[in-house]
Simulated assay, not measured.
Amino acid sequence: MEFDATFFAFVGLLLFFALIAYLKVPGMVGRSLDARAGKIENELAEAKRLREEAQHLLAEYQRKRKEAEAEAAGIVAAAEREASALTAEAKQKTEEYVARRTALSEQKISQAEADAINAVRAAAVDLAVAAAEKVIVAKTDAKTGNALFEKAIGEVKTRLN
């Protein structure tokens, strides 16, 4: 019996498989594949965890952005309220100032009118005194003038004492 090359190749193949089975290569390959599968699972779990963390951070940043926008809107509203309050206060102070200035002006006008009336009265009194003096001088003689003078001196003396 002659063995050809195919037979020897088949025997070599059987010996190779026997050697592989003896050295437990399929178990080592299985463990290697299991280790690699475990590593891939760990990487997938880590990637999933990182993705969830990224989504959590994104949600947190969006929440913070919304809070910041709300705070900015509150600040703007407060600034608008303060500006309107300042405007109203300035308007009120301006109106009060105008009212005070108007009252002061009216008071000065009233005082000027009173001064003018008093000046006219004083001028009228002076004029009346001058006219009365002229009339009295024209109608009285020396004897009546001396009597009036003596009477006036007597009144002054009694009032001084």
Results as ranks from 00 to 15, higher is better:
residue 2 E to F: 11
residue 2 E to R: 09
residue 4 D to V: 05
residue 8 F to E: 06
residue 9 A to C: 02
residue 10 F to Y: 12
residue 12 G to Q: 13
residue 13 L to Y: 10
residue 18 A to L: 13
residue 18 A to G: 13
residue 18 A to K: 08
residue 19 L to P: 00
residue 19 L to A: 14
residue 20 I to W: 06
residue 20 I to E: 06
residue 22 Y to S: 08
residue 23 L to Y: 12
residue 24 K to D: 12
residue 26 P to H: 07
residue 27 G to M: 09
residue 29 V to Y: 10
residue 29 V to R: 08
residue 31 R to M: 12
residue 32 S to I: 03
residue 35 A to E: 12
residue 35 A to Y: 08
residue 36 R to K: 13
residue 36 R to V: 04
residue 37 A to I: 12
residue 46 E to R: 15
residue 48 K to E: 14
residue 48 K to I: 03
residue 51 R to A: 13
residue 52 E to N: 12
residue 52 E to Y: 04
residue 53 E to H: 07
residue 55 Q to R: 15
residue 55 Q to F: 10
residue 55 Q to E: 15
residue 55 Q to I: 10
residue 56 H to N: 11
residue 57 L to K: 14
residue 60 E to W: 04
residue 61 Y to P: 00
residue 64 K to A: 09
residue 64 K to G: 01
residue 66 K to T: 06
residue 67 E to V: 05
residue 69 E to K: 11
residue 69 E to G: 02
residue 72 A to R: 14
residue 73 A to Q: 13
residue 74 G to T: 03
residue 75 I to T: 09
residue 77 A to N: 11
residue 81 R to L: 08
residue 84 S to I: 02
residue 86 L to Y: 03
residue 87 T to S: 14
residue 89 E to I: 02
residue 90 A to R: 14
residue 90 A to K: 13
residue 91 K to L: 12
residue 91 K to V: 04
residue 91 K to F: 01
residue 97 Y to D: 11
residue 100 R to S: 06
residue 101 R to E: 11
residue 102 T to F: 05
residue 104 L to H: 08
residue 104 L to W: 04
residue 111 Q to V: 04
residue 111 Q to Y: 03
residue 112 A to V: 05
residue 112 A to I: 05
residue 117 I to R: 14
residue 118 N to R: 15
residue 120 V to H: 06
residue 120 V to T: 10
residue 121 R to N: 07
residue 123 A to K: 13
residue 123 A to T: 08
residue 125 V to L: 08
residue 128 A to Q: 08
residue 132 A to W: 05
residue 132 A to K: 07
residue 132 A to C: 05
residue 133 E to H: 04
residue 136 I to K: 09
residue 137 V to P: 00
residue 141 D to F: 06
residue 144 T to E: 10
residue 147 A to Q: 08
residue 153 I to D: 01
residue 153 I to F: 03
residue 155 E to K: 03
residue 155 E to R: 03
residue 155 E to S: 04
residue 156 V to K: 00
residue 157 K to I: 01
residue 159 R to C: 00
residue 160 L to W: 01
